[in-house]
Write a protein that binds this DNA or RNA. Structure first.
Lengths: 148, 148
DNA sequence: ATTGAACCCTCCTATGATGGGAAGGTCAAG
DNA sequence: CTTGACCTTCCCATCATAGGAGGGTTCAAT
């Protein structure tokens, strides 16, 4: 990524199997907005441009974008992904480094899930006893108010 | 809240059982920053001020802040809380209206938890097969890369 | 050729909830 | 009367994503 090849005409680029940002977005599943954003924050390098200043993406770029997309779908943060991309590039990486990142992420997910489940448990208790009719009496409000 | 009583001296206000923002924060568990923020977005009304322009909080104000804090701990959004506060104030409310808000929130929590659990399941599979040693081979990276 | 749709570009703004910090005024205790 | 702990307002940052304005480019259909 960011090899900054010589500039091309748009048509010429497409003829060589290169993609403009819209096509790269479709091919990778990452939105045009986000591709530009990932470049701006340095998650991906600067790519080549046509004479008209259009970004031009090759197969490897799309590969990277898909990697990012998949990692986002698994909930990794951008900083995690920055590290994962760098490990991916590094042929001398240790799988332990990768596993460590994944493990920390899993722990964070578990903590967050536990928090939300605790909220749910409380809410289920409260709504269980709420009539849900036209009367004003409501254990949900009572709980919130009593905390007060 | 927001009754905008006549201005007072600071000492005079504290003598009457009124609180400055720092004391209101301690009494309610809501940070000073967030109390000001809630006022700025109209979640709570504008309170009275001393001659020195210090905010002055009464018992009811603290009550409202505790209500907000409790609702935030249960994961309700600010907009949910705006509605809940208004229902709380409304003696002619229907408990159905309250239950509806809580139900929608629970459904949102359940969706989010399910998403995160699905991420976790995938990550557990991947890390299960990752040696986590000094070798570079790593099913986690393989998964991310193969998506690409 | 001209025009219009559908792209592309950069730059600015917003989201939701929270916090950090600067610059300056006020209060209370020593 | 100083000092430290408050208070005030205003601006900025977070995190990932999206919307839009204003302007240039490409391409296909008139």
């Amino acid at each position: 990524m960011g090899r900054m090849e010589p500039q091309l005409e748009h048509a010429e680029a497409l003829g060589q199997g290169l993609l403009d940002i819209g096509r790269a977005a479709k091919a990778s599943g990452v939105s045009v907005k986000m591709i530009r954003h990932y470049e701006a924050i340095g998650l991906i390098g600067k790519v080549a441009r046509t004479y008209a200043n259009y970004r031009v993406y090759g197969g490897e770029d799309v590969h990277n974008l898909r990697f990012i997309r998949r990692a986002r779908m698994l909930g990794f943060t951008i900083e995690d992904i920055r590290a994962l991309l760098s490990l991916w590039q590094d042929k001398k990486r240790s799988s332990a480094a990768v596993k460590k990142i994944a493990g920390a992420h899993m722990a964070a997910l578990e903590r967050r899930i536990a928090e939300m489940q605790s909220m749910l448990t409380t809410l289920r208790h409260l709504t269980h006893n709420c009539h849900g009719d036209q009367r004003p009496d409501c254990p949900i409000l009572d709980d919130l108010a009593q905390a007060a």
